[in-house]
């Protein structure tokens, strides 16, 4: 069977994990803090995947080193597929991410460039190992525009982006709504109208998941393969487990992770 996915995302910047609201970051704590608070480990027992995005501006070699070290610490007790990304511009970067334990990498900037780099990465690690994430925002006239550099610069319209992204090699597309980011007010579904019926890659939505009803509303869409939540506080403790089980009760096709004693 093919199941839908609930994915947890963490934003990492300069040694600390952050919350984000409309792309403005707020520090919450370092890796030790995360490991020991908010039932993070418990929450991870109920997710399909974990994404950890390094949003450190202009990351230096030592920023990357620290990021990879912290991920290593975080991974000690987490046994799920992990997607890593942030600042990947060339093949050498991607290789580093895979060598540091990425099952998939996240590319954003590269996907705006119709870059050959994705082709090179795919030829070594496979298309399925590349997740394209695109940040977009609704303009006053209702048009959806995509942004690069953490929402700083307009790139092209989302419509245009979706029609050109097909030219690069990748495994899945993540649509991240800047407007909904961190609001917990529900996910944007308008973007789905721009996805052609024949689009043959999994589409995931990010931004705005705040309560279990939001999971149902988005995951019940035929075009949606999964949703991503980055809000540490909206699904505290058993929150994510309950939201997952609630969705399963409402006939959303998710696998059920059971508690097992080791």
């Amino acid at each position: 069977m093919i199941y839908k996915r609930i994915i947890y995302a963490l934003l990492y910047c300069a040694g600390e994990f952050h919350l984000s609201r409309n792309f403005r970051l707020q520090k919450v704590g370092n890796v030790e803090w995360l490991k020991n608070n908010f039932g993070f480990g418990e929450t991870c027992n109920f997710i399909d995947e974990l994404i950890i995005i390094n949003v450190t501006p202009n990351p230096t070699q030592s920023d990357f080193k620290k990021y990879f070290e912290d991920i290593k610490k975080l991974k000690e007790k987490i046994f799920v597929p992990i997607t890593l990304g942030g600042g990947i511009r060339k093949l050498e970067h991607a290789k580093k991410f895979f060598a540091n334990g990425a099952d998939k990498i996240l590319v954003n900037y590269l996907a705006h460039q119709e870059s050959k780099t994705c082709k090179q990465i795919a030829s070594i690690y496979g298309e399925q190992s590349i997740s394209v994430m695109v940040d977009y925002k609704k303009e006053a006239n209702g048009k959806l525009n995509t942004f690069i550099n953490s929402g700083k610069f307009i790139s092209k319209s989302l419509k245009n982006f979706i029609s050109t992204v097909k030219k690069i090699k990748f495994g899945e597309l993540i649509l991240n709504s800047i407007d909904k980011d961190g609001t917990g007010a529900g996910l944007d579904l308008d973007c789905l109208k721009l996805i052609p019926e024949k689009f043959n890659k999994p589409v995931l939505l990010m931004g705005g998941a705040g309560k279990p009803e939001h999971f149902i509303k988005s995951l019940s869409q035929k075009k949606v393969s999964g949703i991503i939540t980055a809000n540490l506080f909206n699904f505290l403790g058993r929150g994510l487990e309950e939201a997952r089980n609630y969705s399963i009760d409402k006939n959303i096709k998710l696998v059920q992770f059971k508690k097992i004693d080791l």
């Binding site: 046994f79 992770f257 059971k258 508690k259 097992i260 080791l262």
Partner: peptide
């Protein structure tokens, strides 16, 4: 990479 079930 399969949670507790995999570890078991």
């Amino acid at each position: 990479k399969s949670h507790r079930a995999g570890l078991v």
